[in-house]
C-alpha cells in the first residue's frame, strides 16, 4: 500500500546540511495501523510530511497505491492529497468556521455540491460523536472535541490513508485514550490505513500493529508491536518500552530493588501472549527448593496481545538458584538476571 524506498530528506541550515530523514525504506500494508516513534528531532515529522508531499524528498521515493507521491506535483498532487489526509497535534481548525463548516472545507476543495457537503458533514459529525455541536466554533470546544473535528475533516473525502501527526500529544491521558479508541474503530470500520507518529509508547502499545523506531533520521528497529515490547533490541527502543512498563526509570528501579532485597538473586521475567496464562511460577516453586518472592509485576495489553514482566527474588543455595533459572530459560520465558548476589 505504502512503499518508502531509500527515502532521504536533507535541509540546508545555517550550520550546514541537516539530514532529517536518512535512507528510510519500509512498506506499510493496507488496513494497518503503523506507528513511528522517536524523540523530537528524530525526523518523524519530516517523514510523515513526505508521505503526502508536503515535503519533497532529496532522494528516494514515496509510493502510495502505485502512485509516486514524491514525483507528482500540481493538480495531480492536490488530488492525491484528498486520499491521503492528515490530522495534527494542534488540530489546525479554522477558527472562523463552525464545526460543520470546518468539516465541509475539504469537500469544498474537492468541488462537492453544497447539499451533498452538508449531508456528508452531518454524517461525519455523528461518526465522531459530536452530534449537537455542529454549529459550535472551535473556541467553544475542548481539545478532545477539536481533534474529533480534525478527524471528521480528514475523513470527509473518503481517504485511503490517514496520517496522524502527534495527534494526541496535546491531550490529557483520558482524552488521548478516547481519541485512540476512535482511531481504532475507524480503522476497523472503514478499513483505513493509519500512519501515526508519536513520542509516546503508550499510543503505540494501545493501537498500533507494527512500529518503526526512529533515531537521527534512521529507522533503527521495526517490527510487530508485541515483539518489540517483548524483546526490544536497540537501547532507544528499550527506553521507549520502559516508558510504559516501569513507572520509574528502569535503572533507578533496579538499584532500589537491589538495595531493598540484598539477598539471593533478582530475576526479571518477560511473558508474552499465551505464556501469561501458563502456571510457570507454580512449577518453579514445586520443583525447585528455592524461596520465591514476587517483588514487582505487571501485565500490559497491546493491540496484538498481552505481555507481562515479573521481578522475582530467588533465595536459596546457589546451585538451586542456577537450576531454577535454567528451568525458566527452558520454558522459553524471557529471563534476565538483574544482579548477582
Amino acid at each position: 500500500m505504502i512503499e518508502l524506498t531509500n527515502l532521504t530528506k536533507k535541509y540546508q541550515t545555517d550550520k550546514g546540511v541537516l539530514t532529517a530523514v536518512d535512507d528510510v525504506s519500509l512498506s506499510i500494508e493496507k488496513g494497518e495501523i503503523f506507528g513511528i516513534i522517536g524523540y523530537s528531532g528524530a525526523g518523524k515529522s519530516t517523514l510523515i510530511r513526505l508521505l503526502n508531499g508536503l515535503e519533497k524528498p532529496t532522494a528516494g521515493s514515496v509510493e502510495i497505491q502505485d502512485q509516486k507521491i514524491s514525483a507528482i506535483r500540481g493538480k495531480q498532487l492536490r488530488q492525491a492529497r484528498q486520499k491521503v489526509s492528515m490530522i495534527f497535534q494542534h488540530f489546525n481548525l479554522l477558527w472562523s468556521r463552525t464545526v460543520k463548516e470546518n468539516i465541509e472545507f475539504p469537500l469544498e476543495i474537492a468541488g462537492v455540491p453544497k447539499s451533498a457537503r452538508s449531508t456528508r458533514a452531518l454524517e461525519l459529525i455523528e461518526l465522531v460523536g459530536l452530534a449537537g455541536r455542529e454549529n459550535a466554533y472551535p473556541s467553544q470546544l475542548s481539545g478532545g472535541q477539536k481533534q474529533r473535528v480534525g478527524i471528521a475533516r480528514a475523513l470527509a473525502n473518503d481517504p485511503e490513508v490517514l496520517l496522524c501527526d502527534e495527534a494526541t500529544s496535546a491531550l490529557d491521558p483520558q482524552t488521548t485514550d478516547s481519541i485512540l479508541d476512535l482511531l481504532v474503530s475507524i480503522n476497523e470500520r472503514l478499513g483505513l490505513t493509519i500512519v501515526l507518529i508519536t513520542h509516546e509508547m503508550h499510543v503505540i502499545r494501545k493501537i498500533c500493529h507494527r512500529v518503526a523506531v526512529m533515531e537521527a533520521g534512521k529507522v533503527v528497529e521495526l517490527g510487530d508491536v508485541l515483539t518489540i515490547f517483548q524483546s526490544p533490541r536497540e537501547p532507544i527502543t528499550k527506553r521507549f518500552v520502559a516508558q510504559v512498563t516501569e513507572a520509574q526509570g528502569a535503572e533507578e528501579t533496579v538499584r532500589r530493588l537491589r538495595e531493598a532485597y540484598p539477598a539471593g538473586e533478582l530475576v526479571r521475567l518477560g511473558f508474552i501472549g499465551e505464556q501469561t496464562e501458563e502456571p510457570v511460577l507454580t512449577e518453579l516453586i514445586r520443583n525447585h527448593p528455592v524461596d520465591v518472592n514476587i517483588i514487582q509485576g505487571n501485565i500490559s495489553r497491546t493491540h496484538g496481545g498481552a505481555y507481562g514482566t515479573l521481578i522475582l527474588q530467588l533465595k536459596g543455595p546457589d546451585s538451586e538458584i542456577r537450576s531454577a533459572i535454567s528451568f525458566l530459560e527452558n520454558r522459553q520465558v524471557q529471563t534476565e538476571v538483574i544482579s548477582g548476589a
Binding site: L54, L77, R78, R81, F88, F91, N92, N157
Partner: peptide, 10 residues
C-alpha cells in the same frame, strides 16, 4: 498549521 492543513487537503 492551518495553512499546512489546507495544503494537506489539496
Amino acid at each position: 498549521g492551518v495553512l499546512e492543513a489546507a495544503r494537506s487537503m489539496g
